[in-house]
């Protein structure tokens, strides 16, 4: 049986106390929320904190407040299941709820939290392996080694951004609160992530993500399209989040982020530029053609590599298809999403 290594387990009663403990132990300490990401990594010995700081007793990291007209704040310890089944979120943020509901499995969503999902470790099938396996390749750049086996001549790590909620939440311009030793700061998610498989979050080690802030719902619509092999369990190997506001038939604002195909949620900049101000209607051949042409621009920035499930070249080719579909989902008149694949 795979077992956890020994560690000291701290159970502080508040976020502030948790921050103090992590600050005191530095790199030796890690926060744990649902444990669905950290514990497998510890069992595989890719994470080896001597101190694990549980957030389960921090009541200040729980709960939801606010309303759709002004924006909703969700405590970081809210489980993905709670989000999935919250009637208000389902009605007012269906795109976000859909993204949360396609994370892994119902059992893992009962345990995993939104805070944990936002800070999910980047994934790579040279990294998400046991100690023994990694010894066979003399380890990799992200853990214990020096070479990135995905691209050995590259100076960087290519581990993949694999959270389902991140691309969508970036697209809708959600933000988070980070609590540090010297107080809180609010950071837009779009500014939180970095294009690096190792240093993928721009926050100090002891900073604790305490809450997610969803923007006010003032007419925008959002969608998440996930590519994976199976309708359950699997991480996205491409995950497109799109957010669109219309001014009549015209695109007022559009944002598209591509996850699961690079170390961060990649902005589909060119696609967005091409469609800004365009006239788009649902179920309209000309609009579809316009979207398809713009989505084609998402091919180039997509960094699908051979370190996830499914063929990298095909995943890259699927990016424009998924981008187009995600944008079309956001058009007025598009039916609500129920699928679990594609």
């Amino acid at each position: 049986m795979l077992r956890l290594p020994k560690f000291s387990y701290h159970r502080p009663a508040s976020g502030a106390e948790a921050v103090r403990i992590v600050a005191a132990h530095g790199g030796e300490a890690r926060y744990v929320a649902g444990g669905t990401d950290l514990y497998p990594n510890m069992k595989r010995r890719v994470q080896r904190p001597g101190h694990v700081v549980a957030l389960s007793r921090c009541q200040d990291l729980r709960g939801m407040r606010g309303e759709a007209r002004s924006g909703v704040t969700i405590g970081a310890m809210t489980t993905l299941s709670a989000i999935e089944h919250d009637p208000r979120l389902r009605a007012e943020y269906p795109g976000f709820v859909h993204a949360a509901s396609v994370v892994s499995t119902p059992l893992l969503r009962n345990m995993g939290t939104i805070g944990g999902n936002l800070l999910l470790d980047t994934r790579c099938n040279y990294y998400d392996q046991s100690h023994e396996w990694r010894e066979s390749i003399d380890f990799c750049k992200k853990c214990d080694g020096s070479t990135c086996w995905v691209a050995p001549s590259s100076p960087r790590c290519w581990a993949v951004q694999s959270s389902d909620t991140v691309p969508l939440l970036c697209a809708i311009d959600a933000s988070v609160t980070l609590l540090g030793a010297d107080g809180e700061r609010r950071v837009p998610l779009r500014a939180l992530y970095r294009d690096d498989g190792i240093d993928f979050v721009q926050k100090r080690h002891e900073e604790l993500l305490t809450a997610l802030h969803l923007p006010a719902t003032n007419g925008w619509r959002a969608s998440y399209r996930k590519l994976r092999r199976r309708g359950s369990f699997d991480f996205p190997v491409l995950g497109v989040g799109a957010c669109l506001s219309m001014d009549g038939d015209r695109v007022a604002e559009l944002d598209v982020r591509i996850g699961g195909a690079g170390s961060w949620p990649i902005p589909a900049q060119k696609t967005v530029e091409m469609l800004r101000g365009a006239v788009l209607r649902f179920d309209d051949a000309a609009s579809d053609e316009l979207i398809r042409a713009a989505a084609q621009e998402a091919y180039k920035p997509t960094r699908a590599m051979d370190n996830t499930d499914l063929d990298a070249h095909w995943r890259k080719k699927m990016a424009p298809v998924f981008v187009a579909r995600a944008i079309r989902d956001c058009l007025p008149g598009a039916p609500p999403r129920r699928d679990v694949l594609g």
Binding site: R44, L107, M111
Partner: peptide, 25 residues
């Protein structure tokens, strides 16, 4: 033992969770 199969499912306060990723404490 990694949360990838569901064989270790138990109910905690009526909610199904994976016992392999739940710290006993």
């Amino acid at each position: 033992e990694l949360g990838e199969c569901g064989a270790c499912t138990v109910l905690v306060d009526g909610v199904p969770v994976l016992s392999c990723l739940t710290l006993a404490q």
